[in-house]
Design a protein around this nucleic acid. Structure first.
Length: 515
RNA sequence: GAGCCUGUAGCUCAGUCGGUAGAGCAACGGACUUUUAAUCCGUAGGCCAUGGGUUCGAGUCCCAUCAGGCUCACCA
């Protein structure tokens, strides 16, 4: 046991001795600290003559010499509402028989003044057992100190919960990224901005649902345990069901079940949920992440583009309504409509090479040093695109109309079968959304599945072919637009968070002390 | 999976050329009834990530391991 813990346990003992429960209990009728701050206009100064004076608002006049102003009023008394608050002690200063304590709840932070003469010996003895990190409640008068700080002048103290372990540095908070992730509770409680970041995450997710529900979309919950990992090209996590003695995988995408629902007549349907990919970890990849997939019958990728803009604009309004958002040392302008450019236009812009000139593209690829022998011209083009174009897509920008051969499971343009009706939304070089006009021809789908699985043995291929999905398509899936949004990445961009682990409460980490 | 970087007190961090382990905050004792990163006086707190090696001597140099970060790879 550390000295810190021993000292805190000793105070815990004293609290019990004083007749208080160190683990507290229900505490009704408190105001949130944010609400209390909003009530500061009720505070008055009453002069000896009986004249009532309004208190100048320090937020409006930050340079005001409050102490001087107060002296100018002469003798009198500050009056303010009786309030009750509760929170965690985050700062404490004592000045003899007087203590200034800052408590914090999830709406803010406020100072308490506890005077021995004002609260009595009993409460004073309790206050001497307070440590940083404890939860306390207070009844008192909301008013200003001589220096103009909004303060609850304590009349009665309540003990709500003892903190046995010492908190991180009271100003620096937690700096070590490993500790911030492992001990997210401490990060939230003591690191600047951490709690707000995750509350903004909640607001974004709620807003996404609101936007879709308002437009008549229906939220569903598909299975997370799949027999076949379909809908994406990632490696799955494998698991096993004991009673059925059956291998299972965690889902890598939401797509195939949502499309079955289109067949079933759910015309506008979405799922906002977790998917799992057994791939590498990076500042943009966590093994489990939150994905939104939306399908709209009788729509196409164009309908999805408008919807994507609406989802993002509404999410920003839900946070703070600021469409010019800082991102690292730059600013992203999210004001819709976003730029829309075709794949070929961007290719030509960034490389100076005509996107339809296969020979010139191959020459460029050779110059970069790519292996080009035996590759499909569109594959070469796509490799050059990733190398030369994607990083330049600071966006937000919709990249539309991809070469059909690199997205086989997408419907082609009727006017040009070499082009797939697909867009991706890029922001700061990061792929945030991906949408298609969905393929609904079961024979073509089956053929393309087979081609996609061609590299695998027949046995593996059969195991990965989702025959039920093909069967569903045979019953008729209406023409539809489909959209996927990486919600964690969107939240990263909206909260100026450079790593996906900053917006996932409990990202995957190796266990501690695994040596 | 590869390369580079990091790991020192509860927290944030110094630690020079290899020569007895440092600071701020937090803690403990004391002074102070309007402080606000309060101040002042005093005290205590260390498996220098772990395990080896080199050396008279290692926080420091070398090797391995563990954990984390970044870059790359992987990744509709």
């Amino acid at each position: 046991m550390t000295d810190h813990e021993a000292a805190r346990r000793e105070k815990l003992r004293k609290i019990t001795e004083l007749g208080h429960d160190p683990w507290g209990g229900r505490f009704d009728d408190r105001s949130l600290i944010g609400q209390l701050r909003a009530r500061r206009g009720e505070i008055r100064f009453v002069k000896e003559s009986g004249q009532t004076v309004e208190i100048p608002d320090r937020d409006a006049q930050p340079d005001l010499d409050f102490r001087g102003w107060l002296q100018d009023q002469g003798k009198g008394e500050m009056t303010g509402p009786k309030v009750r608050a509760a929170g965690r002690i985050v700062l404490s200063r004592d000045a003899g028989k007087l203590r200034f304590i800052n408590i914090q709840d999830w709406t803010g932070n406020i100072q308490l003044m506890v005077g021995k003469a004002q609260v009595g010996d009993e409460s004073w003895a309790l206050a001497e057992c307070f440590d940083l990190g404890d939860f306390i409640g207070v009844d008192g008068k909301l008013a200003y100190t001589k220096t103009g700080e909004l303060t609850i002048f304590a009349e009665k103290l309540h003990f709500l919960t003892k903190s046995i372990a010492p908190p991180p540095d009271k100003h620096a908070g937690l700096a070590d990224p490993e500790l911030r992730q492992r001990m997210r509770y401490l990060d939230l409680a003591y690191s600047d901005g951490a709690l707000d970041r995750f509350r903004n995450r909640t607001k974004v997710i709620q807003s996404v649902r609101d936007t879709l529900n308002k437009q008549g979309f229906c939220e569903i919950e598909g299975p997370t345990l799949h027999a076949i990992a379909g809908g994406a090209a990632a490696r799955p996590f494998k698991t096993h069901h004991n009673t059925l003695d059956m291998p299972l995988v965690l889902r890598i995408a939401l797509e195939l079940h949502l499309k079955r629902l289109l067949v079933g007549g759910m015309e506008r349907v979405y799922e906002l949920g977790r998917v799992y990919r057994n791939e590498g970890i990076s500042p943009r990849h966590n093994p489990e992440f939150t994905m939104l997939e939306v399908y709209q019958a009788f729509g196409d990728y164009g309908s999805m583009m408008d919807l994507t803009e609406a989802i993002i604009a509404d999410a920003i309004n839900a946070i703070d309504g600021n469409f010019k958002r800082s991102w690292s040392d730059t600013v992203i302008d999210f004001t819709p409509p976003f730029d829309r450019k075709t794949y070929d236009e961007l290719f030509a812009e960034q490389t100076g090479v005509d996107a339809t000139d296969q020979a010139a593209i191959k020459a460029l690829a050779d110059k970069i040093g790519f292996e080009t022998a035996g590759k499909h011209p569109d594959v070469i083009k796509s490799e050059v695109f990733e190398e030369k174009v994607e990083d330049a897509l600071v966006g937000p920008i919709f990249v539309t109309d991809y070469p059909a051969s690199i997205c086989p499971l997408t419907k082609r343009k009727r006017s040009n079968p070499a082009v797939a009706e697909r867009f991706e939304l890029f922001i700061q070089g990061m792929e945030v959304a991906n949408a298609y006009t969905e393929l609904n021809d079961p024979d073509l789908q089956e053929k393309l599945f087979k081609t996609q699985l061609a590299g695998l043995s027949e046995e593996e291929s059969m195991a990965k072919m989702d025959h039920d999905f093909i069967r569903a398509l045979k019953h008729g899936m209406p023409p539809a637009g489909g959209l996927g949004i990486g919600i964690d990445r969107l939240i990263m961009l909206l909260t100026d968070s450079p790593s996906i682990r900053d917006v996932i409460l409990f990202p995957l980490l190796r266990p501690e002390g695994s040596s």
